[in-house]
């Protein structure tokens, strides 16, 4: 039994390889980008608009509202990163209903890549907002003694992000795989449904946590209690 789609290699040439993780990621990317292109190609600025446009608008506005609720006052600035995170993880989970598909988020490489992106994006957004000095100063708050702990916190939460998503997605796929081999068909279907729910929740948690980290990085004036509490709540849920 494969634990990760990384192990399914279609082509390899030295260091370069084409495994199921990358192929399925491209598939998801194609679906998302081509779907967006098809819908946004004939966007209506008028009051009357297509159902697909309504769906996309609902998704985009929903994401923006979530970002705003976390504490980011200019959601349009962060929606490309955070929204893409959510849509990618959600689409990766949603596609588990397709037979033969393995979610790329079930690969630790993918979740690590996403977590690394968050790890890099958080200081970039922080520096953009407060300047290099201002951002670095946040590591020494409230005292210089907190500097190593803050750095450890930064690394550990990235690791937690990667492992949390990987663990949830991998376990879901794994359980379905095991159940398929030992039980009749009905029970794996129920588990697939549960896996869909778990996947959507994970997508939400991953993007919201990224938003919370960015919100914490960009402004020290904002009450930190709200993002921290959200972070803690989400951790409790998982």
């Amino acid at each position: 039994m494969r634990l990760s789609p990384d192990e399914m290699i279609f082509w390899q040439h030295g260091f370069f390889k084409l495994n199921a993780t990358i192929v399925f990621t491209w598939g998801i990317m194609l679906v998302l980008v081509i779907g967006s292109m098809l819908i946004t190609r004939k966007l209506s600025m008028d009051f009357k608009r297509s159902r697909w446009q309504n769906l996309l608008e609902m998704v985009v506005i929903g994401i923006m509202k979530q970002i705003e609720e976390v504490g980011l006052k200019e959601p349009a600035k962060y929606i490309a990163f955070l929204g893409s995170l959510f849509l990618f993880v959600a689409m990766a989970s949603l596609c588990t209903i397709i037979p033969g598909y393995e979610p790329p988020t079930g690969s630790l490489s993918t979740t690590a890549a996403l977590a690394l992106c968050v790890l890099i994006a958080v200081p970039l957004f922080g520096i953009e907002d407060r300047g290099l000095g201002g951002y670095l100063k946040t590591y020494t708050e409230p005292t210089i003694i907190m500097l190593p702990f803050n750095i450890i916190s930064e690394v550990s939460r990235t690791l937690a992000l990667a492992v949390r998503l990987f663990g949830n997605m991998m376990s879901g796929a794994m359980i379905i795989g095991i159940l398929l081999s030992i039980t009749p068909f009905l029970f794996p279907i129920v588990m697939t449904l549960l896996g869909l729910l778990t996947g959507m929740v994970q997508a939400y948690i991953f993007s919201i946590l990224a938003a919370v980290y960015i919100a914490a990085a960009i402004s020290s004036k904002k009450p930190k209690s709200t993002p921290v509490r959200a972070d803690q709540n989400l951790k409790h849920k998982t």
Partner: peptide
């Protein structure tokens, strides 16, 4: 390698979605 490829894939996805999804929708 997969980590690097996935990171690049994700960044490309961010750029593409920004270009084809968020901007047009927000503009509309």
């Amino acid at each position: 390698f997969t980590v690097t490829a996935q990171a690049i894939n994700f960044l490309v996805l961010v750029w593409l979605l920004r270009r084809f999804l968020y901007k047009p929708i927000l503009k509309a």
